[in-house]
Amino acid sequence: MTLSITRRRTIVAMAGALAPIACRSSAAAASPVRLSYQESSVLLQVLRNRAILEPRLQALGFTPVWSQLGHSLAELGQVDFQGDVAEAVPVMIHQKLPNLILYAAEGPSPRAAGIVVRNDGGINGVPMLNRKRVGVAKGGSSFDLLLRSLHNNGMSLADIEATYLPEAASSAAFSSGHLDAWATYDPFLSSAETDPRARLLTDGGSQGLRYDRYYMVDAGFARAHPQVVKAMFDALVEGAAWIRTHPDQATTLLSGLWQNMPLEAVRRIDSHRNYSVRAIDNTDIPTLQQIAGRYRAAGVLPMDPDVASIGIWKAA
């Protein structure tokens, strides 16, 4: 049977009118996946801005909802996927947030953490930090670097004037001369190194720091949606490969995301990072246990956080 022109036009018009409704219904049906990131989350920044992750999630009926990584325990527990964190963080938060498990690691990148000093301070070696004001974020991997550096030179926290500040506050204090040294990590480290008033005293590569970055997921979410965790892992692998094969584009992208950071500093950051994503293996938990031991000895952890019980996600 042949449709009349009028009927065909009516059907086409109805289809056109219904299409947006169908799209809206499909979008509304997509389940949100809550993900966090921080300034140093290079791979996650690439995933967000290169549309690497979103199509993978949409194919599974999910949509990403991004937020800046919080630092309180309440904020850390409000996402499904925790932004990449330095290796000391799982040790610090496990006791309060045992539901967060490891699903991927990037690194090691030991040169991405370091201690910078002022050129006019006359500090030419770690022993010369004695009685000096050293800024550091307590509990992070730059804190672990500081502990290692002091220990390797027969010193302890008691020999310095440790000033515990978040990175932005340490940066301001160091620039204004209120700190003699600053233990930090990228992108703050490389930004400080490009300042003609500062120089690198030591880095993780010289002090035995691994500086892996860990990616964490809520255990309940991982059990319910293992296909989403697999999609996230695969997206991280793809993002890392893109950075390695497109270094100039990656540098330009990251510079824009970091308030137009000078390209020289961004290239330095890229040279420090491994950009190799891997599954969690049997070397990770012992590394975290060693960090826990150093932190207990330094009085940062009041009790054993039972690092051995940190969960690990493995693809089926």
Rank of each mutant, 00 (worst) to 15 (best):
G239R: 01
P226T: 01
G135Q: 08
R294Q: 06
A88V: 07
A250N: 02
D159M: 08
Y214A: 13
T2S: 15
R133D: 05
D306W: 11
V237M: 13
G204W: 04
M261Q: 13
K96L: 14
F81H: 08
R210F: 15
P302S: 14
P90D: 06
P32L: 15
A181E: 00
L97E: 11
R294F: 07
G205A: 04
A113N: 09
A13N: 05
V229I: 09
I160P: 00
L165K: 01
V91Y: 01
L129F: 08
S190E: 04
G208F: 07
N153P: 02
D306M: 14
K138R: 14
P166F: 03
D281P: 07
G205K: 00
K138E: 12
R9Q: 10
D304E: 03
G256Q: 04
G70D: 02
T283W: 09
A279R: 05
A28H: 09
H272W: 11
L145V: 10
G311Y: 10
T245W: 14
P20M: 04
S36W: 00
R268L: 11
E75P: 04
S26L: 15
S141G: 09
A298N: 02
L236G: 06
P226I: 02
I5D: 15
G208V: 08
M155V: 01
T245K: 12
R7F: 06
F188V: 10
W258F: 06
V46I: 13
N274S: 12
I101W: 04
A105T: 05
G121A: 14
M14F: 12
P247L: 06
V307D: 01
V300D: 05
A17I: 09
P20Q: 04
A137V: 13
A105I: 05
A297T: 12
Q38T: 07
S40Q: 08
T202D: 00
Y37M: 10
H71M: 08
G121T: 06
Y164P: 09
K230S: 12
I5E: 15
N130I: 06
T245M: 15
G239P: 07
L146T: 01
A19P: 10
H151F: 11
T287V: 09
P64S: 08
T194C: 11
R7M: 03
A162Y: 02
G177K: 00
L73D: 10
L3F: 15
M92A: 14
K132I: 04
R7E: 06
F143P: 01
